Simulated scan of single mutants.
Amino acid sequence: MIRRSLARAALGLALICAAPAFAQAPALTPSHLQVAREVADVTGVTAGITNIYGEFEKSVQDILATRPEMKKDADAVVAALKPEADKRADEMAKTAAEVFARKMTEADLKEIAAFFKSPVGQRYNALRREAMDDLLLVLQPWTVQTSQYLFDRFSQEMRKRGHTF
């Protein structure tokens, strides 16, 4: 009994000590990170990150619509916060690039970047948001209807098996 406990403790300690070695990913090369950042940029991922300041600025302006006496001070504070927002956005864009780099090879990322720089890739990017908006209009009611249908069918099948809901 004591031997088993000691063996388990030793195994646990060995696994804990080995965990950092398993968790470490291979170092990413500067060129791999560069192309990953390029993909994040050309696919619009970084635009979503950098747009946060603009959204913040718009929210402040919406608040100021009811508090015009604060406009001058608020505008100064918003402007002063821009460098901080830019720094945070750049940090997150670097993180996004690292995520892409860890998930995909440098060669694959180069192909993706080439596609999004091509005329068809640029058209895709330009129309993607509009297409997604259109799709969401169709997808929302479909999701509700399909979910309800599946639940109804589930209930029917469960009743056949003697269960009630």
Rank of each mutant, 00 (worst) to 15 (best):
A40T: 03
E106I: 00
F56Y: 08
T143W: 11
E91V: 07
S155W: 08
L127F: 15
A76R: 06
L135D: 05
D75Y: 05
Q156H: 11
S31F: 06
E157G: 04
A80I: 01
D152K: 09
P83I: 10
V39K: 10
L13W: 06
R159F: 09
A107M: 07
E55I: 13
F100P: 00
M132D: 11
V120A: 12
K71F: 08
T46P: 00
L64K: 06
P26F: 11
D90Q: 09
L139Q: 12
A9V: 03
T146F: 15
Q61P: 01
D133N: 04
K71G: 05
D134Y: 15
A74C: 04
L127S: 13
R67E: 09
A40C: 06
S59N: 15
L6M: 11
T164N: 15
E130Q: 02
A113N: 08
A85D: 02
Y53K: 01
R128A: 10
I16P: 00
A114N: 09
V39L: 12
L64T: 00
A85E: 05
D108N: 13
N125K: 11
M70D: 13
Y149C: 05
E106W: 04
E84K: 15
G162M: 07
D134W: 14
E130T: 02
R8S: 13
H163P: 01
A114W: 01
R37V: 01
L127M: 15
A27V: 13
K58L: 14
Q145N: 12
V45I: 14
S31R: 07
E130W: 04
D86A: 07
R37F: 07
I63Q: 08
F151D: 13
F100E: 03
A36C: 04
R4Q: 13
S118C: 07
A93V: 00
D86Q: 11
K82F: 04
P141H: 04
A114D: 04
E84Y: 15
T46N: 13
Q24A: 14
I112C: 02
V99D: 03
A79F: 04
F56T: 03
G12M: 09
